[in-house]
């Protein structure tokens, strides 16, 4: 199996996971790179993205798995970049890599923006919120009958630092990636619910790194 490491930024942030898969399949064809297809009546390109990114997030550490058939791996980034829409850039293409189950943590930079400057005390309010012994929020769920489940966020946060800038508060978070993972949107929900004074006008979320259980980069 091969992996493509790529980033997703600017306008491409708003391409959904499903659309991104389709976009990659077409880009492979445009680039003239053959990849392995599923067998069966309606063969389709065999590509997967282990950790789908929410619409609107940017990322510098996305990974797509596929099997490149006819192209030297070092040629793949350049040929793909010529065939991809703006904002998606393939950095490298490599063989193998660590198993997906070792993908344990994700490092997110969440920037809280305030039109009239960060409110006084917002930073410490968020700090305190994150240092609580438990932080339970309601989350939508397809499985639960009520359509909602309660989740405690604290065990899913491995590390968190909060830093105040001029009009922003930046949170550097290391969150559990899977089984279960934590979407930083839920932390924003918790901030809005528990410390409404610290609620931002807008939040941008960037995925900076994916990490293994030892907090080393996973690739």
């Amino acid at each position: 199996m091969h992996r493509l490491a790529f980033s997703k930024a600017d306008t491409a942030k708003f391409i959904s996971h499903l659309d991104l898969m389709r976009t990659f399949q077409r880009a492979f064809l445009r680039a003239g790179i053959a990849i392995k297809h599923t067998e069966g009546f309606n063969p389709h390109a065999f590509v997967s993205i282990p950790l789908p990114l929410s619409v609107g997030f940017s990322s510098s550490c996305e990974v797509l798995e596929c099997q490149v058939l006819n192209t030297p791996l070092e040629e793949v980034p350049q040929r793909m970049n010529a065939a991809l829409p703006a904002g998606i850039t393939v950095q490298r293409c490599y063989d193998g890599g660590r198993p997906v189950k070792e993908l344990a943590y994700v490092n997110y930079i969440v920037t809280l923006e305030y039109e009239t400057g960060a409110p006084f005390g917002a930073e410490s309010a968020i700090q305190n919120l994150l240092s609580r012994p438990a932080l339970v929020v309601e989350k939508r769920s397809k499985k639960a009958k009520s359509g909602k489940v309660e989740v405690d966020l604290i065990p899913l946060i491995a590390r968190a630092t909060v830093e105040e800038g001029r009009d922003t508060i930046a949170m550097d978070l290391v969150l559990k990636a899977q089984n279960p993972g934590l979407n930083p949107e839920l932390l924003l929900t918790a901030i809005r619910a528990n410390c409404p004074d610290a609620a931002p006008d807008y939040a941008s979320i960037h995925r900076r790194a994916v990490l293994n259980p030892q907090f080393q980069p996973w690739a």
């Binding site: 600017d10 306008t11 708003f14 959904s16 445009r30 619409v55 609107g56 829409p85 703006a86």
Partner: peptide, 10 residues
Amino acid sequence: KPARYTGGEY
């Protein structure tokens, strides 16, 4: 469907 409003397509 925000991708309708961004441009930037191939």
